[in-house]
Design a protein around this nucleic acid. Structure first.
Lengths: 239, 239
DNA sequence: CGGATCCTTGATGGGATTCAATTCGGGTGG
DNA sequence: CCACCCGAATTGAATCCCATCAAGGATCCG
């Protein structure tokens, strides 16, 4: 059920079967959310962290006038809010962008787990630091990349992250978000997302249609986006 | 010497004198950096984390054409790269934006410290999660706030963070960055930073000149920026 | 088949960049 | 003491990327 979680960890660090069993024993309730359901609201006190088993979720913040910014996407195997273990409440909301199945990890169990296994504590600390690295790359995208490069970069990132958990091929992946959702990730309007996607299609780099991304020219896409996967820490020294 | 660090921690959590002493005992060498010196380069293997004693530092990434994006600013009392303790190398560079005095904390000492004092481990985990929260707010700024609101927001954030360590009054603070530096924080050109600052001055909200920010109307500034300090977690439940 | 939702495209406008020139302030040395 | 210089700040003009506004088209589903 949470094999994707172990795949994600093992893409970066060794994990013993004992550690794997310990993590399993910290699992709590399973739940499902419909698409577009905000399942955690900012400022709510939390006593569980949520792991995605299936589906795509996002962290987002709104401005008064209704403008929304998604600050990170989550794929199967990701904790959406492991950081709530130390923060206790979140500064953002969590939404299911597609139908999602999740597993809850009670903070009390995580406390036991991380105290008994300091190495797991470090692995999970690493995991939240990886989220921060993704945030930094998004700050760079928003601040300095053009709309088309930013769009390309997002798909490059997703291709890598989804591959780790067996949800992408080298040349494409299912991704059932609307162009409005993408716009909220990319800090632009859905109209301009549409034009950027058209441009990427015309350049022969990729198509995104009917909830599926086809990457026709990954090197070209990465070149345009200046995508360097090192921020995803796929080859870290042992922890 | 690292009183600002304890002030920063105690603004959010209790810290016993024993814990304080333990942290002190993990201190290593002191160093000074000149302004504009990049003191950590991306992808270098690190075995120390760096605490700022005096000065302003920044995390930044560059694109090929030389465009630079600063993804976070650091003030006295901050670790610039506590996350290198689990990441081992960084996905970004660290630069002294003003002359800086720092203290090194060897990772070996941090490992001892966090294993002996699990609560300190949680406090430091919290600290890196706070960096991520700041990143998220910057993503929102870059993606959805106008140039003037983004500029105002940055000064609101700095006023709060500097106040915690006694480096700001309610109505202003020293801040010896150039408009080019600000542009690299804000994802815009220095020309437009200049125009945004003029607008803020004309609106009677703040002035920034000669390395000093004067906040004439903090409520007005916060209103314009839609600044809500909750992402800085100044009132978290006990850890 | 009608309605909802999402996608697509065109026309127009505006906020930010780009390019360029001028001013300002702080040093430095003749 | 002042001419000179240099980096930083300031301002104007032209341009461009992206947003806004608006209208049609596609797809799906009850």
């Amino acid at each position: 059920m949470i094999e994707t979680h172990f795949a994600r960890i093992r893409a970066r660090h060794a994990l013993s079967t004992e550690e794997e069993a310990a993590i399993r024993s910290a699992m709590g309730t399973s739940l499902s959310f419909e698409a577009h359901h905000t399942f955690v609201e900012a400022d709510t006190l939390l006593d569980v962290s949520i792991l995605i088993v299936e589906g795509i979720a996002g962290r987002y913040k709104d401005l008064r006038d209704g403008q929304r910014q998604i600050t990170e996407l989550h794929v199967p195997g990701d904790f959406t809010d492991l950081h709530s273990f130390t923060l206790k409440r979140l500064d953002h909301n969590l939404i299911a962008l597609t139908p999602c199945r999740v597993v809850l990890f009670p903070h009390a169990k995580l406390a036991e787990l991380t105290e008994r296994y300091p190495r797991i504590a470090r692995l999970y600390w690493f995991s939240t630091n990886l989220d921060a690295a993704i945030h930094r790359e998004w700050v760079l995208s928003m601040g300095r990349r053009s709309a088309i490069a930013r769009t390309a970069h997002l798909f490059c990132e997703l291709q890598v992250r989804l591959s780790l958990v067996g949800r992408a091929d080298p040349d494409g992946f299912d991704f059932r978000l609307s162009q409005v959702d993408l716009a909220e990730c990319l800090g632009m309007t859905s109209v301009h997302v549409n034009r950027s996607l058209r441009r990427l299609r015309e350049l022969g780099l990729m198509t995104f249609r009917n909830g599926r991304a086809e990457l026709h020219d990954v090197p070209g896409l990465r070149e345009l986006a200046e995508f360097d996967p090192s921020y995803l820490y796929l080859d870290p020294p042992p922890l």
